[in-house]
Design a protein around this nucleic acid. Sequence first.
RNA 1: AGCGGGAUGGGAUAGCCAGGAGAUUCCGCCGGGCUCAUAACCCGGAGACCGGACGUUCAAAUCGUCCUCCCGCUACCA
Length: 738
Amino acid sequence: MHEEFPTDEPAVVTCGLPYANGDLHVGHLRTYVSGDALSRALARVGQDVAFVCGSDMHGTPIAVNAAEEGVDPESFALEHHERIRETFPQFNVEFDNYGHTHDGTNTELTREFVRSWIDGGHVLEKEIRVAWDAAADQPLPDRFVEGTCPYCGEDARGDECDEGCQRHLEPGEIEAPVSTITGNPAEYRTRPHKFLRLSDFQAYLQGFLDRLEGTANAQNQPREWIEGELQDLCITRDMDWGIDYPGDAAGDASDAPEAGDSTETDLVLYVWVDAPIEYVASTKQYSERVGADEYDWEAVWKNRADGGEIIHVIGHDIIQHHTVFWPAMLRGADYNEPRAVMACGFVNLDGEAFSTSRNRAVWADDYVESGLHPDLYRYHIVTGSEFVADVDFSWDGLQERVNNELVGTLGNFCYRSLLFAERNYDGTPDAEVSEEVREEIEAAIEAFHAAINDYRVRGLGQVPLELARFGNEYIQRHEPWKLTDDDPEAATQVIRDCVQLSKALAVLMEPVLPGKAETLWNQLGEPGSVHDTRLEDALAAPPDAFDEPGELFDQLDDGTVERLDAQLEARIEAAADDAADDAAADRADTETDDADSADTAADAGADADRTETETDDADAADADTMDVDPIANDRVPFEEFTDLDLRVAEVLSADPIEGADDLVRLEVDLGVETRQIVAGIRQLHDLESLPGTRIVVVANLERTELFGVESDGMLLAAGEQADLLTTLGEAEPGTTVQ
RNA sequence: AGCGGGAUGGGAUAGCCAGGAGAUUCCGCCGGGCUCAUAACCCGGAGACCGGACGUUCAAAUCGUCCUCCCGCUACCA
């Protein structure tokens, strides 16, 4: 489908936008280092390429955190933006442009996108229920509300179920909502919002995924999302931090006169709208800085006929946004589609997940302060595993890779070669490169090309190591130190080959080890910059003379590793102590605070405890069935109980819902009327035997729709097996349960 | 429940898409060599019947089916 790199069209490599809400850790950096390496590699093979990114400045977490600190969101985000921006060079991650989503370029471009969607008829308005803080009299978009995930029951915040199933939550979905502003239970109010009609792009997206390159997970994972009818994406939020929805500014005179302080009634765009557009905006800024002759952003993004090569490098947690929402957004605005999405796995810390809340993390600053060269981290993280797989970071692991591979193999070969050459020949000995070595270098170049075209950044790091391995073998096999006296000509040949191999290594290692490549390049006495080389330069003759080289890599000694480990341990423990204190405080809070969240907090605590401390009890009880949940501490007033309208009902029919695994559509007789109720009991009951059964239902539960079927009420059942509540006597359908 | 990914010598990994001499690399273990090199480098050896079971094939770690276990994802709330 696509031609191989390098192509005639310009390319752009982007990385997922860091959120301007905190610092980067070595897990985040995997994406940026990988993107940087890929972009450098593309340049080495002669591809015209830009590497861009920017900070994600909007969204409710920033608004929430800024409010907590008592500063305005803009300066809050800008401060983090600067910190993040300054972090990248410390890891040799060099963006051609690094902007942010709040700048003029992105704001303008985002509005253009949205206007295109409006013009194209892809935007519709719907009235939806949004969480509302009655006390503060304001809407509660996304992270301004916390509650329970409607899908998995875990604690969730805002637009995602961060603790549980990780689902994207649309506004209004979260249950038992609580305002993060006042801590009060939130209510729901109906508000008008704008939606992007994703279903318009259903067929297009199917084809898009067939064409998409990159990693397999990015291509396969979205398949099921686009199989069913795509839900409309709510693209607006009730808040004032963000980019204003452009429709209002243009037309609705009724809304706000221009004065500006209309506060909470303003609609801004959902953060996931303007965030990816920053990819375009940042490219545009780069283009404007260097001139369109040098790099033309429109050729990449806009010219559909022979568009450029758009490559997104992301973490696999945001595949959905990049393979469904984003291509639809681009398509709707008549922009080019991505050629490739590369989604990497997570970085674990000593085998366990990072936890920023528990401070179980190695922050970018920690690494910088360790004094270790950034290229060591780069090599470790890029070659530590296949891109799609998770990779482990530990100081031990780093030490092993560094000492064995970078010091022992790569550094040692270059050092012994150049040192020998300098001592005996004052530089490159006078001879032609042997056929064997030339072929070896050519094979490495070939492997390098293959790695790029397969989107395997790992290969970019492996290729130079393999060539160095060959080098060590080669020099050992020929033992030039024995030949200098016996057979000077043969010695000259061998060393000439080794110097050439070193030069090839400098070129080939540049993407993953840019700093060390530069050092090696300079040791060879090369004029120019290794960052401007092409792969072919690996075969060109090095300068005749160069100075005595230094050691390319230093050993990472045990003392340093122990110190770094101890430092990490100490911090995890300190954080654990804090967390224990917090948890205790939380428990105290919830006892006196609102009843709703106390329930969930207590449950979560009980679950966690159970796995660790109550195993004995579990054994004593009927172990393979279940534990009995502790009785809830919180007493509810009788009035609250009477709010529930419980009734006896008789099942009239029970039919499975097509396409669902668990859901059953029940018709029940409530005495005064017949109701339709949906329940997830398909796997647990023989549906044919249900009609005639008397059950108990909550008759005044809010209506909802499950799998497209309306459910008007809820049946009551006990335990995992959904043992149905029924009546002992002859209570007629419709009888109130009290 | 479905989908995606994974299960390979003591540990960590490659190979599987394009099936063919009992399998890569790093660590660890045993033995040897070399001494230009950062106790680095090179060579040799022990050690896995490639999660389990069927099947396709002259031939399977590699293809197919089923199963077990792990991880991730998804619009099903009794």
